[in-house]
Amino acid sequence: MTYSLFKIIHILGVVLLVGNVTITFIWKFHADTTRDPIVLAFAQRIVTWTDWVFTAGGAALVMIGGYGMTAVARIDPVATGWLLWSQIWFYAVGLIWLLVLVPLQVLQSRQARKFAVTGTIPESYWQLCGYWNLVGIASTVPFLYVLYLMIEKS
């Protein structure tokens, strides 16, 4: 493949990844404000689905495109400072997503399936939402820094 094709794949991945993590938070936040068990159960199901499709899919495209570009251009992704730091932050956020956010979403989804039927939202769901929101926002900020590094290449 050519450098340009890898670049298109990379940019598409960035758009899907950063766009999804941003809009998912906004969408879920507004669903949570309804406090409607049916709306929340639907939102939780869609958040989980879009995370796997767009966040994970976007991350895969970012890696395919990024490593493809470095291979074609014969650039060492570890010896180049901005590429090294971009990878460190990217993988750190990925670990937070896999080890913290995904398990929280699984717990929230399980609760949501139950309260969609019972109509009673447990307090533990709101605690999980607060933690998910906090960790989600905190882990989105490094993505913005990685975007800066990609654009500035410094």
Results as ranks from 00 to 15, higher is better:
residue 89 W to M: 15
residue 31 A to D: 06
residue 71 A to V: 11
residue 152 E to K: 12
residue 90 F to V: 05
residue 125 Y to Q: 10
residue 44 Q to W: 01
residue 83 L to W: 08
residue 107 L to M: 15
residue 44 Q to G: 15
residue 130 G to H: 05
residue 53 V to T: 11
residue 145 Y to A: 12
residue 54 F to R: 06
residue 113 R to G: 04
residue 37 P to G: 05
residue 100 V to R: 04
residue 70 T to Y: 05
residue 16 L to T: 05
residue 5 L to H: 05
residue 60 A to I: 15
residue 121 I to D: 04
residue 75 I to C: 06
residue 79 A to G: 09
residue 57 G to H: 02
residue 82 W to P: 06
residue 92 A to K: 00
residue 136 G to P: 03
residue 41 A to H: 11
residue 94 G to R: 08
residue 86 S to E: 10
residue 87 Q to L: 11
residue 140 T to Y: 05
residue 95 L to G: 13
residue 63 M to T: 14
residue 80 T to H: 01
residue 16 L to H: 02
residue 153 K to F: 03
residue 54 F to P: 06
residue 137 I to M: 03
residue 24 T to P: 00
residue 116 A to Y: 01
residue 139 S to W: 02
residue 48 T to M: 10
residue 72 V to Y: 07
residue 146 V to P: 01
residue 48 T to R: 14
residue 139 S to F: 06
residue 101 L to K: 04
residue 30 H to M: 14
residue 137 I to F: 00
residue 63 M to E: 09
residue 26 I to Y: 10
residue 141 V to P: 00
residue 38 I to H: 09
residue 143 F to S: 13
residue 70 T to H: 05
residue 109 S to E: 11
residue 80 T to I: 08
residue 78 V to K: 10
residue 122 P to M: 08
residue 17 L to F: 13
residue 141 V to W: 03
residue 112 A to L: 04
residue 86 S to K: 10
residue 149 L to Y: 05
residue 96 I to G: 04
residue 7 K to I: 13
residue 62 V to S: 09
residue 26 I to L: 15
residue 141 V to D: 02
residue 124 S to M: 02
residue 117 V to P: 01
residue 5 L to S: 14
residue 128 L to E: 13
residue 96 I to Q: 01
residue 8 I to F: 13
residue 73 A to F: 01
residue 6 F to R: 06
residue 64 I to N: 06
residue 79 A to S: 12
residue 134 L to C: 08
residue 102 V to Q: 09
residue 99 L to I: 11
residue 15 V to G: 03
residue 88 I to Y: 06
residue 115 F to I: 07
residue 144 L to D: 02
residue 76 D to T: 09
residue 40 L to A: 11
residue 40 L to T: 07
residue 138 A to K: 00
residue 48 T to Q: 11
residue 103 P to Y: 00
residue 44 Q to M: 14
residue 104 L to N: 11
residue 55 T to P: 04
residue 99 L to G: 15
residue 23 I to V: 15
residue 33 T to N: 12
residue 41 A to F: 08
residue 2 T to K: 07
residue 116 A to P: 00
residue 117 V to A: 15
residue 143 F to A: 11
residue 59 A to S: 12
residue 80 T to F: 01
residue 31 A to K: 08
residue 39 V to Y: 00
residue 86 S to P: 06
residue 75 I to E: 08
residue 112 A to P: 03
residue 112 A to Q: 02
residue 135 V to K: 04
residue 68 G to M: 02
residue 18 V to A: 12
residue 49 W to C: 10
residue 6 F to K: 00
residue 136 G to M: 04
residue 95 L to R: 04
residue 148 Y to S: 05
residue 97 W to K: 03
residue 124 S to Y: 05
residue 103 P to G: 01
residue 73 A to I: 02
residue 121 I to W: 01
residue 4 S to Y: 12
residue 30 H to Y: 12
residue 89 W to I: 15
residue 121 I to T: 09
residue 151 I to L: 12
residue 68 G to C: 02
residue 37 P to S: 05
residue 74 R to Y: 05
residue 14 V to W: 14
residue 6 F to Y: 15
residue 7 K to S: 12
residue 145 Y to S: 02
residue 88 I to K: 06
residue 136 G to C: 07
residue 22 T to P: 00
residue 127 Q to W: 12
residue 41 A to E: 11
residue 34 T to G: 07
residue 123 E to Y: 09
residue 36 D to M: 01
residue 139 S to V: 02
residue 138 A to G: 00
residue 152 E to L: 06
residue 114 K to F: 03
residue 121 I to P: 07
residue 114 K to P: 03
residue 34 T to M: 06
residue 38 I to S: 09
residue 38 I to C: 00
residue 1 M to Y: 11
residue 153 K to V: 10
residue 87 Q to A: 11
residue 82 W to N: 04
